[in-house]
Design a protein around this nucleic acid. Structure first.
Lengths: 263, 263
DNA sequence: GTAGATATTGGAAGATTTTGCAAGATAAAT
DNA sequence: ATTTATCTTGCAAAATCTTCCAATATCTAC
């Protein structure tokens, strides 16, 4: 293994676990801790991670659509606008499948008024409705994927394969004219089952997802009925999507600027 | 684990429980209370939480009613003692089914060290472990029963009928020499499935459940391997249970009175 | 292909940071 | 007012980081 490859593996490993100790990295790539230290110094200078005492952590842990954090205010107002616009699409008494993912979580926040039936594999969404007894929430079973608060595994896939719903509201990692992709391989099977179960497919993707491609392809554009995004989405890609027959809804920009995290 | 990661885990844990004591946090991350103190000082300066006497709490209470109600439920200290004593019964690497109910929730709080596999239909328990990746938690699917945060319905029953586990830790509404009863009819089918799935059956019942009878019979004493209760349980009933071959464990009365919820 | 030069690696010694403990100070509870 | 619990502060031990050096691997020139 070359030094270059080793650095790459360190980066990739860190992306997966967020935090890693010297010992852990040294064992993973099979070199001494001294060498890992040097690698980390280089990688930090290159800006791809941050060193900490005892190890290293990724630089941008919040970039992940599915990494859920209740106090995450990353593009909060955009997502809130998308959530509001997307909730408008839901007719009364419709059954809705809600994907995991922060953007879809914001849709859920606006769904209570509609009083539909909701099916999800997202713990944060479940918690949101757990006290409200206006809405009937069905939670798919499965193994809790710790960092994300999402239920995964064969049990989850099976649950959705047995379901039927009017609408599925989905998240994803990226969208291009070639289709929609996602970064979490574990979620792909579940999302495919969701797509099968629903009659109408709506994707909620903030503008940062446009033009991006993640590792795992999820579905083609022909399966998608509508995409809800914010007004900062690149115009030519929006036009291209509309040409392919996908309805694209631009949520109006929020009047007030994005609220800064509490301090 | 690096110091950075530890702070992150403290933040995440606190998000789940709203408030946590020094001792609790120290056990959760596996360092001394001194170190937790230092971490809390840093995190408070960074603005992600607020220190209080005896622990810390989140800055923006998001009214997570489960964690909250579990905390300021009456007989907190008795249940905490039962939880600690019951967790002692679990061997390492055992798979555990956890029933819904506040007493069992307190058992869950002490199970993380054991690093077992946990199966439950309780949202509060799921939330407790959602940030910790030491424990694998399987959540049964089902319809959310709003007030209690429990998953109910045929989907839930089916999930447990397919499971096998070493131990089931159960709640109930009442216990007499005639057997164990519960008031929530919706839960009876699920609890019966749990009893079938587990090899060893442990009931956690605080003293107020002794001598009480609820509407729906759940099971006879012959199915029960052990009962964990507090030291205020009526002696003659405890003796009667032991005569029937049920192991009864009296959790020692807590030395310190119940810690009051943060306000 | 070989010899010398250069870069990389693994380890060790000293400096720095972090951790856990204990004693005095402060705050809460009865 | 007393008692208990919790917090702060200081200190020694442990862990980690930096810097340096020898050994090995890789590269370049011939």
């Amino acid at each position: 293994m070359t030094a270059e490859e080793r650095k790459h593996r360190i980066e990739a490993y860190l992306q997966g676990v967020e935090f890693a100790s010297l010992e852990e990295l040294s064992q993973h790539v099979g070199v001494s801790t001294s060498t890992v230290r040097r690698d980390l110094t280089v990688l930090e200078a290159a800006g791809s991670l941050r060193r900490t005492h005892g190890g290293a952590r990724v630089l941008t842990p919040k970039t992940d659509e599915f990494a859920f954090s209740a106090r995450d205010s990353h593009q909060f107002s955009e997502k809130e606008a998308i959530g509001r616009a997307c909730a408008e699409l839901i007719g009364s008494n419709q059954s809705v499948i809600l994907d995991a993912g922060t953007t879809v979580y914001h849709v859920a926040r606006h769904l209570e008024e509609k009083a539909p039936q909701i099916v999800t594999n997202s713990l944060p969404v479940a918690n949101l409705f757990a006290s409200a007894n206006k809405v009937e929430v069905i939670l798919a079973g499965g193994v809790i994927y710790p960092r994300l608060g999402v239920l995964v595994g064969p049990m989850t896939v099976e649950a959705f394969l047995k379901m039927r719903a009017d609408v599925a509201i989905m998240s994803a990692g990226g969208i291009t004219l070639e289709g929609i992709t996602n970064s979490h391989a574990l979620l792909i099977d579940i999302q495919r089952a969701m797509l099968k179960a629903a009659q109408k497919i709506v994707f909620c993707l903030d503008h940062s997802k446009f033009g991006r491609q993640s590792v795992s392809p999820l579905c083609g554009l022909d399966m998608v009925d509508a995409i809800v995004t914010d007004s900062l989405a690149p115009a030519e890609l929006v036009a291209g999507l509309r040409e392919r027959g996908v309805e694209v809804i631009l949520a109006p920009a929020p009047a007030n600027p994005a609220p800064v995290a509490a301090h």
